[in-house]
Computed example of a mutant assay.
Amino acid sequence: MQNLIKQGVIATDDSWQLLRAEDAAFAADDDVILPLARFLQVQGGEHRGGLAVLLAPDSDPLALQPHLADLPLIAIDFPAFADGRGYSIARLLRERLAYRGELRAVGDVLRDQLSYMAQVGFDSFAIREDRSAAEALDGLADFSEQYQGTVLKPVPLLKRRVSN
Rank of each mutant, 00 (worst) to 15 (best):
M1N: 07
M1W: 00
Q2E: 12
L4P: 00
K6D: 10
Q7E: 09
G8S: 06
G8H: 00
A11L: 00
T12D: 14
T12Q: 14
D13A: 13
D13P: 02
D13W: 02
D14S: 13
D14R: 02
L18F: 04
L19W: 06
R20M: 11
E22F: 08
E22G: 04
E22Q: 14
A24L: 07
A24M: 03
A25I: 12
A28Q: 08
D29N: 14
D31C: 08
V32A: 00
V32H: 00
I33R: 01
L34F: 12
L34S: 07
P35S: 08
R38H: 08
R38I: 09
F39Q: 09
Q41I: 11
Q41G: 06
V42P: 01
Q43F: 00
Q43E: 13
G44W: 07
G45T: 02
E46R: 11
E46I: 05
H47M: 01
R48V: 05
G49F: 00
G49M: 03
G49V: 02
G50V: 12
L51C: 06
A52Q: 10
V53M: 09
V53T: 05
L55V: 06
D58N: 15
S59G: 05
L64F: 04
L64Y: 03
Q65K: 15
A69G: 15
A69P: 09
A69E: 14
D70N: 13
D70M: 10
P72Q: 02
P72D: 01
L73C: 00
L73E: 01
A75T: 03
I76V: 15
I76A: 06
D77G: 03
P79M: 04
A80E: 09
A80R: 11
F81Y: 09
A82P: 00
A82K: 05
G84A: 14
S88I: 04
A90P: 08
A90S: 08
R96I: 04
L97D: 12
G101A: 07
G101F: 11
G101R: 08
G101S: 03
E102T: 12
E102A: 12
E102W: 07
R104M: 01
R104I: 01
A105N: 08
V106Q: 01
D108Q: 06
V109F: 03
L110I: 13
R111D: 11
R111Q: 14
R111T: 04
Q113I: 07
S115I: 01
S115A: 10
S115M: 07
A118Y: 01
V120D: 05
G121C: 09
D123T: 10
F125D: 05
A126S: 12
A126Y: 01
I127F: 01
E129K: 09
A133F: 02
E135L: 15
E135N: 15
E135G: 10
A136F: 03
L137V: 06
G139M: 02
L140S: 03
L140H: 05
A141G: 06
A141F: 12
E145L: 12
E145G: 01
Q146C: 11
Q148C: 13
G149S: 07
T150H: 10
V151M: 06
V151A: 12
V151G: 08
K153W: 13
P154N: 09
V155M: 11
L157A: 11
K159F: 13
R160M: 10
R160A: 12
R160L: 13
R160H: 14
R161V: 11
V162S: 13
N164L: 15
